[in-house]
Design a protein around this nucleic acid. Structure first.
Lengths: 234, 234
DNA sequence: GGGAGTATGGAACACGGTTCCAAAATGTGT
DNA sequence: ACACATTTTGGAACCGTGTTCCATACTCCC
């Protein structure tokens, strides 16, 4: 390991010098292509024309590498989120959806964006959420709990929705999987599963992104109500 | 693999016969003790006085085994959830908290309870949620979206809150980790992170379970409002 | 009691994370 | 310029894991 982490491109060193940034960048490419299990240090080393040992000089281990890669792609969400001059609620919504869409493009990352935040972009996300929450009329002592709750929702529910695709998606398409699952639901005993047996068509037709926004809107509605309890929206 | 899966204890076979149930039971014990990475087929086989090969006759692979184990412990939540005769909202809340507490006792399981539901207890959970949602005044066409949203919240946010402990908890205690994270937040530039830098004490003092219920209550408040828009609760 | 099918368990295979270390490249003091 | 210390490289080797293979043992049924 380097004594000084991230000595960075200060002009010194060789031209083809390795760095955490370069390694993470290459890792993201492989992760997008092959998923977490497909990423190996040997393969990554080959892409970078080096050996596995060299990588360990810059990166502690695979867990850290994947965490860094996940935080890296999370950063894309901020570029995507619009900076409209609307209410805090609308901005929270837009930010949340930007994160979801970003993770949707990098499914392996969804389950690695964790809390409490320690990496750069996760910190940035939580801070942005907290700042927006503070702009609602919510009393200050609830800022932390509500902000983290929203943060948990965004990353947790995104992971729930997105991760299964990387697992089953390898062999079967999403549609085929849903159809098969719907069939299984239909075969259940209506006495034991009254709800599921009459909900199979919804399962087949549902849109993942709508699922995310449905819960998000419930959450934000609840927030609005707590922030300004006297005025329920139309 | 057996031709007929789950021929079950019908009295036939040898006394020390293996079965998926027995294997999953032993796996849960090891998972509780050693976590997902600590569970190996060799160790599990030793516990059961057999070899790794025998296990593969009953279980497809490790992924399936862990999924079955997670679904198994999820079942405990139903025994824990009270069957009060209150409103649907209160019952949803109690059920959600029971799931959280259950997963909290088996941290490895949290990230493996996934949706859409295919395993027994995950199906049961979603059905229960759907049935309760249907008891609110919500229009039928929204039942599926709202039920799955709540389901996603429960499992997704639980995973977010609980999983990190299995990762960092191995070496450091939760308190030490939070203190260290809070210190890092304090060192951030207030210009870049206005929210985090003034929220460090909340981070140190927060209770994980409260975090879960905070978001849950927001969600359920939003649900109540949608279900009966005219009567905002006190 | 013998034969078909079921189930077992231990050895072997393939492969991945990680460590090790000798060599190369770079920087430093003289 | 030149030795020396330090940083960085990269490939081989170590270790352990999931998984497969297969000879053996056990049941059941005729």
């Amino acid at each position: 390991m380097p004594r000084t982490r991230g000595r960075a491109p200060d002009g010194k060193g060789r031209a083809d010098a390795l760095s955490p940034e370069i390694i993470v960048g290459a890792a993201v490419v492989l992760l997008d292509e092959l998923g977490e299990r497909g990423l190996t240090f040997r393969l990554l080393a080959k892409q970078l024309n080096t050996g596995p040992g060299a990588l360990y000089w810059h990166v502690t281990n695979k867990d850290e590498l994947v965490a860094l890669a996940a935080d890296h792609v999370l950063g894309h969400a901020f570029a995507a989120a619009p900076r409209l001059e609307e209410g805090a609620g609308a901005q929270l919504r837009a930010l949340a959806i930007a994160v979801f869409d970003t993770l949707d493009r990098h499914p392996w990352a969804a389950s690695h964006v964790t809390a409490p935040a320690t990496l750069a972009n996760a910190l940035r996300l939580l801070d942005r959420i907290g700042t927006l929450v503070a702009q609602t009329g919510l009393p200050a002592e609830r800022h932390f709990a509500v902000s983290t709750a929203i943060s948990y929702y965004i990353t947790g529910v995104s992971a729930q929705i997105i991760t299964p695709r990387t697992v089953v998606g390898a062999t079967t398409s999403r549609d085929a999987f849903l159809t098969r699952t719907a069939e299984r639901w239909e075969e259940l005993d209506p006495a034991d599963y009254p709800f599921l047996t009459r909900t199979t068509t919804d399962l087949r037709d549902h849109d993942d992104r709508d699922q995310f926004t449905t819960g998000l809107d419930l959450l934000l509605d609840g927030l609005n109500m707590t922030a300004e309890p006297r005025r329920p929206p139309a």
